[in-house]
Design a protein around this nucleic acid. Structure first.
Lengths: 206, 206
DNA sequence: GTCTATATACAGATAGAC
DNA sequence: GTCTATCTGTATATAGAC
C-alpha cells in the first residue's frame, strides 16, 4: 500500500497526530458496536453519529465514506483480538491458552445470543456484496484468529494444527450462529464446555 | 395459526388453486435463490422480478410486501429440507442417515463457499432487524433440522441427543461460514470428513 | 473544525389505466 | 391479471456558511 513517504504515512494514514482524534476514536468505537448490533446495511451514518455523540453532519470530516467506517470497525476488531491473545500469551502452556480463549467466548454468551459473533456476522454480510471491497479485510481478521490458534496447536505438538484450528474456530462460529438464531446463551455454555473437553482428549492422546 | 375454517385454509392460505400460480412459483424460487446470493437488504424487488422473468410492476399482485417474499423463501427452504430428510429416511439405519446429511452438505460446498448456508446467512441477517418480524420463522427452519438430527441420535441410543444435534448442526454452520469467508470449498470437505469420523467414534463407543 | 442545507439517487409501495 | 406512472420516504454524500 503506497509508501511513497514514511513521513506522510506516519502523519496522515492512521489519523494519529491530528486534532480531533477523540471524536475519531468515539466514532470508531460506535461504528464497531452499532454495526455489530444492526448490521452494515441497516445502519445509517446517523445511527453511528448518534451513538458516538457526534453531530451527524460532522462525520464526513473524519470518514469520507460509509465503507471507511466499516473498515474502522474491522480495525477495532483486530485490535481487540490482539489484546486478548496478548493476555492469553502470558499463560504458561498452549492448552490453557486455548481454554482461555474458549472461556472468553463463553463469557460473551449474552452478546452472542443477541447479535452473533461480531466478526462472523460481519463476514457473512460483507460476502453478500457484489463489490468484494472489504472481503480481504474481514478474512484477515478471521485469519488472525486462525493463525494464533494454529500456533497453539503446533506448540502442543499436534500433527495437523491447521485443520484443528479450523475445527475450533468453526465450532465457535457455529455455536454463535445457533445461539443467536435460537436466542439461547446456554448453547454457548454447553458447546464451549464440549470444545474444552475435546481439547483435553487431544492433549491426553499423544 | 388460526384455523377458523379448513376450507379457507385450503383455498387461500397457500395460494393453491389460484390462477397465475406459475408466476407465483417462479417468484418464490427466484426469491429463495437471489435472497441467498445477495442477502435480504441488498436485494430489491426488481432483482427478484428479473430473476423470475416476471415484469417488475406485477410482483405486488402476488406478494403484497417484500417481507412476504422473504417468508416465501423460508417456506421454500422448509420444503427443500423436508424433501432431503424424506429421502434420507429411506436409509436403513440412523448412522447412515446422518452421514447422508453430511454428504449432502459437502456436495453443496461450492455454493457454501460462495454464499454460505442459505438458512444460516438468512438467520444472521434477519436477527439484526429491530422488528423481529421473521425471527420465529427462521428459527423454525433451524429447529426443523435440529429435530430431525436429534431423532437420529435418539434412535442410535445416544444419552444426549439434543446436545449432539446442536453440535452437529453448529459444526455445519461453522464450516459453512468459514468456507464462505475464506472462499475455500475445501473446508467443507475436510470438516465434513471430520464430522463423519466423529459420528463413527460415537457409534462404536456405547 | 463544525454544522446546515441540500443535491442526488433509489427503494418500497400504491393508484389506476388497460 | 398485467403494466406504467408516480408518490413517499430515506440514505449517502457534498457545498458551503460559520
Amino acid at each position: 500500500m503506497g509508501r511513497l513517504s514514511i513521513v506522510s504515512w506516519v502523519t496522515d494514514s492512521t489519523g494519529i497526530g491530528r486534532r480531533g482524534t477523540d471524536k475519531r476514536r468515539r466514532l470508531t468505537a460506535a461504528a464497531a458496536r452499532v454495526l455489530h448490533e444492526q448490521g452494515v446495511e441497516r445502519t445509517t451514518i446517523a445511527d453511528i453519529a448518534a451513538a458516538a455523540g457526534v453531530p451527524v453532519g460532522n462525520v464526513y470530516y473524519y470518514f469520507k465514506t460509509k465503507d471507511e467506517l466499516v473498515q474502522a470497525a474491522l480495525t477495532e476488531q483486530t485490535t481487540h483480538l490482539s489484546g486478548l491473545t496478548t493476555r492469553l500469551d502470558e499463560l504458561p502452556d498452549p492448552l490453557h491458552r486455548l481454554k482461555g480463549l474458549i472461556t472468553a467466548w463463553v463469557d460473551q454468551r449474552d452478546v452472542a445470543a443477541r447479535f452473533g459473533c461480531p466478526t462472523g456476522t460481519l463476514a457473512a454480510e460483507l460476502d453478500k456484496r457484489a463489490d468484494g471491497a472489504l472481503d480481504v479485510e474481514v478474512a484477515g481478521v478471521i485469519r488472525q484468529l486462525l493463525d494464533w490458534v494454529e500456533e497453539q496447536f503446533r506448540q502442543l505438538g499436534q500433527p495437523d494444527p491447521t485443520g484443528l484450528a479450523i475445527t475450533l474456530v468453526a465450532g465457535y462460529q457455529g455455536m454463535s450462529l445457533l445461539a443467536n438464531a435460537l436466542r439461547d446463551p446456554g448453547i454457548m455454555t454447553r458447546e464451549g464446555g464440549r470444545l474444552s473437553r475435546w481439547l483435553d482428549t487431544l492433549a491426553t492422546t499423544p
